[in-house]
């Protein structure tokens, strides 16, 4: 039986991890390699690096970061942010990443999912979906550009299309829960998990270990991703795993 996965997410800008990470035991808290190693030691099952560089130079630096991380890390990792073409995917995957995550670019041109999936295999292609509940429509709507742009797409339709086009995994972020630390959006996570046949990573809202347990049991997620709760040491990957194991969730 597969374990449920706990995935820390690191935002990288111009080659440096941002968001004020506070680890006293680290010599350089902005070094992606050192942080990656730290989370690996903690029992993280995978890592996600989100490139938030705005400049072309920053994007080029990300390839160097991927190479450095791949040299050190013996667990899988995904890179997202700024991947717009098949060439971008090739650059990142050949630098040693295991998966790429597509968001806005996939919404703008869904064929990109198929191209990547045909070239590298579905297991390499993660489609990231930023979802926000629309009370009038009584369903979730897809947002792009880091949550700034509302689209006309319905989340349930989009995840289905993404998987039909060759997505191997869905990284599902609830914009309603993100940053609130009140738990993952269980209704959204469950609805998407039941809709698609590929693994679903729940994201947005993790505030404590119990929230992770709920994402797996009530939300039926295959993996759960969090950033600040780990970075600010409110809890650790090891603590979360020990807790959810007690709750009967199968972890490594």
């Amino acid at each position: 039986m597969l374990t449920k996965r706990i995935i820390p997410c690191l935002d990288v800008k111009d080659g440096r991890v941002v968001k004020g990470i506070q680890f006293v035991q680290l010599r350089d808290a902005g070094d992606p390699v050192e942080l990656a190693r730290f989370y690996d030691e903690q029992g993280a099952d995978e890592l996600v690096f989100l490139d938030i560089s705005a400049s072309h130079e920053g994007r080029k630096t990300m390839v160097e970061v991927v190479k450095a991380v791949a040299s050190e890390l013996a667990i899988p990792f995904t890179v997202g942010g700024g991947i717009n073409t098949l060439e971008d995917m090739k650059r990142i995957l050949r630098a040693g990443a295991d998966k790429v995550s597509l968001n806005t670019a996939a919404v703008n041109r869904p064929e990109l999912i198929t191209e990547g999936s045909n070239y590298f295999g579905a297991q390499c292609i993660v489609v990231a979906v930023d979802a926000k509940y629309d009370p009038d429509l009584e369903s979730w709507t897809v947002y792009t550009h880091g949550g700034r742009t509302r689209t006309e797409r319905d989340v349930m339709d989009w995840v289905k299309e993404a998987v039909d086009r060759g997505a191997g995994e869905i990284l599902l972020t609830s914009m309603d829960s993100d940053g609130e630390k009140k738990g993952f959006d269980l209704a959204l996570t469950k609805a998407v998990s039941e809709k698609v046949s590929v693994p679903v990573i729940a994201s947005g809202g993790a505030g404590n270990a119990d929230h992770f347990a709920n994402a797996f049991t009530k939300g039926q997620a295959d993996a759960a991703l969090a950033a600040s709760i780990f970075h600010y040491k409110e809890t650790s990957v090891a603590e979360v795993k020990a807790f959810i194991k007690e709750k009967g969730v199968f972890v490594r």
Partner: peptide, 12 residues
Amino acid sequence: ISYKVPHMGWNQ
């Protein structure tokens, strides 16, 4: 009962 393919992730 249907299950996910590929078999992707950590197994013992």
